[in-house]
């Protein structure tokens, strides 16, 4: 088991009180697993990705533990997290453009990053060139400034950079969302390739695009309002979802080939609840077509089939 997250609660501190962005999230991530993390904006998927590597000033760790390869990850302690960052847990941010320093050549930037983490650049120089070639980049990019590269090239540079020390866990936060479709495909395929070659042990791929997740992820976890709604193998989530939220979300996605003439798709009425004072019980109950009295109790996340977890009173039996 690479990663085990147990009842994680992370709140944002605001002047009006705590925003319950993550409220009791528990899941496991196996060795070699690519997990897609999907959900609407504000469901806590980015917060979960960030919590695993660095809590910013407004975020407060309230409860829960994280274990990586059997070691406890002290996310509340910023200094104690340092040995984990980059070595064990690494991140590919959404906008590679803003992740690269515009005033440094890429090679120099990578050298500085490695030294800051206590690694001699020469010891990985060979590997760095090999990996750049693997993702289809000329090692000459090391002598260029970020402005000279296209968006897809920058995203690949950041990916190579983030995985250079073979981290156990890679968090990719909307890593391909800003790219064109053809570039998106090649970047997504290189990510899978990196996993296959063992450069990263497992990966959490945060995205709002479920059809992209289906192309590359082994499992998909759907979040809603700070909690997990459903987690299952990717094909199960797409073809046989059980949680009503997942069903409605999949039903709202237009595909290549569907038109308004064939069938009109329906959106999900209503909006997600505010997390400043989250509702009691199931958080989806106000938008759920099959909600009933029992939904005023919080539904537990239970394994309804092997590897298929859902948090809904209606799916447990």
């Amino acid at each position: 088991m690479t990663l085990r997250v147990n009842d994680l609660k992370v709140y944002y501190q605001t002047l009006r009180g705590d925003v319950h962005a993550l409220d009791g999230v528990s899941f496991d991530l196996a060795d070699g697993e690519i997990m897609g993390l999907a959900g609407e904006s504000g469901c806590g998927k980015t917060t979960l990705g960030k919590s695993l590597i660095r809590l910013d000033g407004r975020m407060r760790h309230v409860d829960g533990t994280i274990e990586l390869d059997g070691k406890d990850v002290p996310i509340a302690d910023d200094r104690a997290m340092n040995p984990f960052r980059y070595h064990e847990i690494s991140l590919v941010p959404q906008y590679a453009m803003s992740a690269l320093n515009p005033t440094r050549k890429i090679g120099r930037m990578i050298d500085e990053l490695l030294r800051a983490r206590g690694v001699r650049p020469a010891s990985v120089a060979e590997e760095l060139r090999r990996r750049l070639e693997l993702v289809g980049l000329d090692p000459d990019v090391l002598n260029r400034f970020p402005i000279e590269l296209s968006g897809g090239m920058k995203q690949r540079v950041v990916m190579v950079m983030a995985t250079l020390l073979n981290p156990s866990l890679l968090i990719a936060d909307e890593a391909t969302s800003a790219l064109d479709v053809s570039t998106q495909r090649s970047v997504a395929e290189s990510m899978v390739e990196f996993r296959d070659r063992g450069y990263v042990k497992s990966m959490i791929f945060v995205t709002h695009d479920i059809s992209l997740v289906y192309q590359m992820a082994d499992t998909v976890m759907v979040m809603y309002a700070g909690r997990i709604a459903e987690k299952a193998p990717a094909s199960t989530i797409i073809n046989a979802p059980r949680h009503p939220y997942t069903k409605m979300l999949i039903g709202a996605l237009p595909e290549v080939g569907t038109t308004t003439e064939d069938a009109r798709l329906e959106g999900i009425p209503g909006t997600p609840p505010g997390l400043l004072n989250p509702p009691t019980g199931c958080r989806f109950k106000d938008r759920c077509p099959i909600a009933s009295e029992e939904c005023s109790e919080v539904p537990p996340l239970v394994e309804i089939d092997p590897g298929h977890w859902a948090a809904c009173w209606k799916t447990g039996r």
Binding site: I210, Y214, Q215, E255
Partner: peptide, 28 residues
């Protein structure tokens, strides 16, 4: 017409684009 362009793309570039779109029920 949209239906024809998507069912029977003729230009190599449109074919390439369509093959890169992530689809919900078919993998790349």
């Amino acid at each position: 017409p949209t239906r024809r362009v998507f069912e029977n793309p003729l230009h190599p570039y449109s074919r390439h684009l369509l093959s890169c779109v992530p689809q919900l029920h078919r993998t790349w």
